[in-house]
Nucleic acid binder design. Structure first.
Length: 266
RNA sequence: UAGGUUCCUA
């Protein structure tokens, strides 16, 4: 079983959910018992494939073997149902867990945040109920209020969060970029203690949204001066800026840039 | 050996 688990782990690292499932079926065919270390990968593979039917079947297998209450397995089941749009079943899995940790609390909370029509009342209720709130839990709530466009509450939570990491800042920055004037975005951006490529992408995205193509380009240059490597999201943003104003020459330059720097594609 | 949060193309 250990050897199989190691192979399955490799297939997930390679982002190959089909291979994960094949290994899982071969394992069963050879009468090797999958254990609580095997199933999180299998459930995750179903989620990646958006294969709810297979996920339900795997869930059934789990109930037979009484592994469904394992904290890692159950949290992955929550994510599976959430990603397939069924928060109700996710909630049921959560309710039936005998032991929960901060990650499982955050997973179900994030389910309400990320469902099609974000239910921030439920999310807030869970947030208030959970015994321990770490930085990820705070970030998830901030992201939720950003998502529904409530920047006031998002900002309040940001100010109240006891510890902040780069994602905390990026989450609020992304909200400003989406809903607020460029000046607000820039002021927040400059005040951030650290910035990564996502921070830059948000700001550039904000410029693009406001059709301020020159500023988008100047930030594109500035990020390189500050040794932050553009990724695909950066380039898509900048290219769409070029397309908007028909800046064919700049577009060509970026095309050239992509080939020159071999930006990892996806 | 495994699980939760940020940037995404008309």
């Amino acid at each position: 079983t250990f050897v199989w688990n190691t192979m399955i782990r490799g297939s997930q690292k390679n982002q190959d959910p089909i291979k994960t499932l094949i290994l899982f079926y071969r394992m069963r065919a050879e009468n090797i018992q999958p254990d609580n270390f095997t199933y999180p990968f299998v459930v995750r593979a179903c989620a990646d494939l958006q294969d709810l039917c297979r996920g339900k079947w795997v869930h059934g297998q789990l109930m037979k073997t009484c592994l469904e209450t394992d904290i890692y397995v159950a949290t992955n089941l929550i994510e599976l149902y959430v990603s397939c749009g069924d928060v109700r079943v996710a909630q049921r899995v959560f309710d039936e867990m005998p032991v929960r940790d901060t990650i499982s609390w955050t997973a179900i909370m994030s389910g309400y945040v990320n469902q099609y029509d974000s239910d921030m009342k439920m999310a807030q209720q869970i947030f208030d109920e959970m015994p321990i709130r770490d930085v990820v839990a705070w970030n998830t709530m901030i992201a939720g209020y950003v998502k529904i466009g409530n920047m006031e509450v998002a900002r309040t939570l940001f100010d109240r969060s006891p510890t902040k990491d780069l994602l905390t800042y990026n989450t609020l920055l992304g909200g400003y970029a989406k809903y607020c004037e460029t000046e607000v975005v820039l002021r927040f951006f400059e005040a951030m203690p650290e910035r990564d490529v996502v921070s830059w992408n948000s700001v550039i995205g904000g410029f693009v949204q406001n059709k301020r193509v020159n500023e988008a380009m100047s930030f594109f240059h500035r990020m390189q001066i500050e040794n932050v490597k553009p990724n695909m999201v950066t380039l898509v943003g900048v290219l769409s800026a070029c397309a908007q104003v028909g800046a064919l020459d700049t577009g060509r330059w970026i095309h050239w840039y992509i080939e020159k720097n071999k930006v990892s594609l996806n």
